Amino acid sequence: MRKTTTLALIATAVVALGCSSGATDSSSGSGSDSGAKGDDKPAKTAKIGQPARDGKFEFTVKSAKCGVTKVGTSMLGDKAQGQFCLVTINVKNIGKEAQLLDGSSQKAYAADGTEYSSDTEAGLYANKDQSTFFEEINPGNQVTGVFVFDIPKNVKLTKLELHDSMFSGGVTVALS
């Protein structure tokens, strides 16, 4: 049943993405942490605790904790294939219209450049009060949530690449 619910949520999210095709902003934020318009790579790397802007969102990574084997409760949860890295991020909408926070657009990287995607199912269990998988944030509002990455036990994450949408250039945040 858990997998069916997860698949239904993912299908709903894909439909929502198709319906909100005009909701993204291709311009970069006005802060110094955002990439220049048209760049594929962020201009500057932020650190934990520093705000970093991409498009309509200002991201502030609050903490990162790896080595977690399970998220959720004893009745409902998800077990890591390797280890879960739980990254707590505050996301503020700095734009002038609502923007959809897509948890699946967030990426994590190891020192060797290996890219890891956010585990959306584990993210549902890790966020007891709200979801960061598909959350619409109105202008001036902010949410704080946990993004979950399932990585091999012997791997250490070194940076995140955070995006206001799947089409944005992203902003880099160093984890070490």
Results as ranks from 00 to 15, higher is better:
Ser30Gly: 09
Thr60Trp: 00
Ala23Phe: 06
Glu97Cys: 01
Gly29Tyr: 02
Val148Asp: 02
Met166Ala: 09
Leu9Thr: 08
Val171Arg: 01
Met1Ala: 13
Thr73Gly: 10
Gln50Asn: 04
Gly123Arg: 02
Ile151Trp: 01
Lys153Ala: 05
Asp54Ile: 04
Leu160Met: 03
Tyr109Glu: 05
Asn141Glu: 14
Ser20Met: 05
Gln130Ala: 15
Val146His: 04
Arg53Ile: 13
Thr60Glu: 00
Phe167Pro: 02
Ile151Asn: 04
Ile10Thr: 07
Phe57His: 01
Thr88Arg: 10
Thr132Ser: 12
Ala110Gln: 03
Ser118Gly: 12
Val146Trp: 04
Asp78Gly: 13
Lys3Asp: 09
Leu7Arg: 12
Asp102Glu: 08
Asp39Met: 15
Ser34Ala: 14
Ser63His: 07
Gly103Phe: 10
Met166Phe: 15
Ala23Pro: 00
Gln50Tyr: 00
Ser117Glu: 09
Gly169Leu: 13
Val61Pro: 00
Thr172Asn: 03
Asn154Ser: 06
Val87Asn: 02
Asp78Arg: 11
Lys79Met: 14
Thr5Arg: 08
Gly55Pro: 00
Gln130Trp: 07
Asp102Met: 10
Asp164Ala: 02
Asp129Pro: 10
Glu161Ala: 15
Gln83Glu: 14
Gln81Arg: 10
Leu124Lys: 05
Leu124Tyr: 09
Gln106Trp: 05
Ala11Met: 09
Gly169Arg: 03
Arg53Val: 15
Gly113Arg: 03
Leu101Glu: 12
Ala36Cys: 12
Gly67Leu: 11
Glu121Cys: 07
Asp102Gln: 15
Pro51Gly: 05
Val148Arg: 01
Phe57Gln: 01
Leu100Thr: 15
Ile137Ala: 02
Ala108Phe: 02
Val87Ile: 11
Phe149Asp: 02
Ala13His: 12
Glu58Pro: 08
Gly35Tyr: 08
Ile94Gln: 01
Ile151Tyr: 00
Leu162Gln: 00
Gln81Ser: 10
Asp102Leu: 10
Arg2Gly: 11
Glu97Phe: 06
Thr73His: 14
Glu121Ser: 14
Phe57Ala: 02
Tyr116Met: 13
Asn141Leu: 15
Ala52Asn: 01
Glu136Ile: 13
Glu121Leu: 07
Leu9Glu: 14
Lys159Ala: 10
Lys107Pro: 02
Ser32Glu: 15
Lys128Pro: 04
Ile10Glu: 15
Asn154Gln: 11
Cys66Ile: 05
Ala98Cys: 01
Val171Gln: 01
Asp78Glu: 05
Lys70Arg: 12
Val148Lys: 00
Val87Lys: 01
Glu136Asn: 11
Ala46Ser: 09
His163Leu: 13
Phe147Thr: 05
Ala111Phe: 11
Leu160Ile: 09
Leu76Pro: 04
Asp54Ser: 02
Ser34Phe: 07
Ala111Gly: 07
Ser20Glu: 08
Asp39Pro: 09
Gly72Tyr: 15
Thr120Ile: 13
Val143Tyr: 04
Gly38Tyr: 14
Thr120Glu: 10
Ser34His: 05
Ala23Tyr: 06
Phe134Trp: 15
Leu101Cys: 14
Lys37Thr: 13
